[in-house]
Design a protein around this nucleic acid. Structure first.
Lengths: 337, 337
DNA sequence: AACATCAACGAAAGCGCTTTCGATCCAGAG
DNA sequence: CTCTGGATCGAAAGCGCTTTCGTTGATGTT
């Protein structure tokens, strides 16, 4: 590894001047600057990030943490979509992402401690559980942070407009003549799940549609299997719904599966609308009508918010709500009277 | 931020002793060791990773790079699956992953340079193009590296058994009575694509099955759209196949789409078998029969291989081939004579 | 000629930690 | 009583870089 001292020796200047030249300080003449840069290139010099960070207290890294409540981690399309978008944009600003582990080489430490240890300049969290203590700890610290997919009073957050997502779905279903509309919900412990429930209820009430208790069934942690189970409950009802708004595409796909198994055809016998617009939604049969979350946009807004805090060196608390859109496909149909 | 000097002052020992106590050196008495550890906990001491790395030349990080030839990046289920598995296991060993960007804050540098700059202890690459110059540069360097999804003579690689994957597929199709079997291939520039072609041809020849040139159609970069296009070509043939082995699930799903569009029903009129076993495969209609790549296993083997190199401090060149399995679902059917 | 100004450069301290090499002290050996 | 060896501890250098502050010499001013 070659250092600025090697460059200093080679060029005849001091290490100070070399450093300054490399960082484009104004008090170095154009000529020596060029000479230094040239021999740096020639000798294959690369700065040492650790030394730099140690001395400047800036690491040009961002810590990324995602909760794995359901064990899928990065494998979930929403997560990987957001992270990928975030990565692309953070990259443009010069930052690398570091996916941190919880365990600091056998000393049992928290995520916050780990990120502090790593000296990241900021943290990006994708977490759906507003009261995860690990996340709370990070939020309460003084490090810049942006959290995605949940609401919070104490930091920058960005999430989809879950409320009007529900409105959008119900409105659409209603416009197709449905009035008996059920909701397969995400667990209340999950922020998005909770809000989508509210969106559903609000929209239903607004139209004076009945919301029997039995029409609101908990789909748990958004998995296909849980969606399938939830749909069974709905179908066993004495007065089953003609349409169901499902809080996640995976669950919706599971729901469609059971419907099919039970001999119902979609959308003829039952309309279904999902949430997320994962890739799969476009390729199941029938193609799933769904509320699209804009993972790209979420990623860019999150980046912007984080950059702003890093630059201003102070936390800013704000909510950035990303609009959702209805993707009209094949799983919903006008109700024939 | 509190340092070992703070601990030294507080406990009355020297910073040397503090450091040794924290690192469990043998020449510190049990008593002072405990005292130091206690006040460290009490004062909320956290080591500074940059200082540590600077002094030890070990960063406990692994650089991760994936080629984005098709622009999907981490969004592709195979990629995210492997990375997630790798992350989990690397974590257990105490390593963090760093997803690096190409541009080192405006100086245009290569991935290798970037990883060198960051001082990673090893590199993990997911790349399908054996002659990507960036990847070659990393392989030729002296840093420990493991590459996934391609073959190479000069480093550790781990990839699926693409050859017997083809064998498996053709064998299955043949056992169902098919003899006119086509292949929608991945581009030859992509290692997996090339080998799967060979697997297809070998298996066909082994059974004395004809392989007309028209039966081998290039599906490009494994996208759904390209799969759909490829299938069109196949269907336009004077003597179309009764079964097609597709080199990737996305392409297979695209292929099924066109088949359906053209009024063919699967598997009645045409059997299709894919490759990957992405989640979607289980939920399209009909459920896609496919060759499953074991992303989990790939991740763990990659971790092991990399750890070994890091510990031994020398590159080891080897090929680790992960077995694939046939996931029999609904998209293939016995050929009625 | 005396002075102020400015451009260009370097000495040195500091970032937080590790590690080598001594120094010190005390128990037990001779 | 002297000597040896082991157990504990610390001084100091070093990792590679940044940044403050001072020095030097050249230029322009009056």
């Amino acid at each position: 590894m070659i250092t600025i001292y090697d460059l200093a020796k080679k060029t005849g200047f001091s290490s100070t001047t070399v450093s300054k030249a490399l960082n484009d300080y104004p008090d170095v003449s154009k000529k020596t600057k060029q000479a230094i840069i040239d021999t740096a290139a020639e000798m294959g010099y690369l700065p040492n990030a650790h030394a730099q960070s140690l001395s400047t207290k800036k690491s040009w890294t961002i810590g990324v943490m995602f909760s794995e409540s359901n064990g899928v981690g990065m494998r979930h399309p929403f997560f990987s979509g957001v992270i990928e978008s975030f990565r692309k944009h953070a990259e443009k600003e010069g930052y690398d992402l570091i996916l941190a582990s919880r365990n600091l080489r056998n000393r049992g430490t928290s995520y916050l401690e780990h990120f502090l240890y790593r000296g990241v300049d900021g943290i990006m969290v994708i977490c759906s559980d507003p009261k995860d203590p690990q996340v709370q700890e990070m939020i309460n610290s003084s490090i810049p942070i942006v959290v995605i997919d949940m609401s919070n009073q104490d930091c920058s957050v960005v999430f989809s407009d879950n409320l009007s997502g529900g409105e959008l779905a119900i409105n659409y279903l209603y416009s197709l003549g449905h009035t008996k509309i059920a909701h397969i919900a995400g667990d209340h412990t999950i922020y998005a799940g909770k809000v989508r429930i509210k969106g559903y209820i609000d929209a239903m009430k607004k139209r004076n549609l009945p919301v029997p208790e039995s029409y609101l069934v908990n789909g748990g942690l958004f998995s296909i299997q849980e969606g399938a189970l939830a749909m069974e409950k709905l179908l066993d009802l004495a007065d089953p719904p003609t349409a169901v708004f499902v809080a996640g595409d995976h669950m919706a796909i599971g729901a469609m599966e059971t419907a099919k198994t039970k001999g119902l055809s979609i959308p003829e016998d039952l309309s279904i609308i999902g949430y997320d617009d994962i890739e799969m939604a476009s390729y199941v049969t029938p193609k799933l009508t769904t509320i699209k979350q804009d993972t790209d946009q979420i990623g860019v807004r999150a980046t912007q918010l984080l950059m702003k805090q890093i630059i201003q060196k102070k936390k800013i608390v704000t909510e950035e709500i990303i609009p959702v859109t209805l993707m009209e496909r094949e799983s919903c149909k006008r109700l024939e009277k």
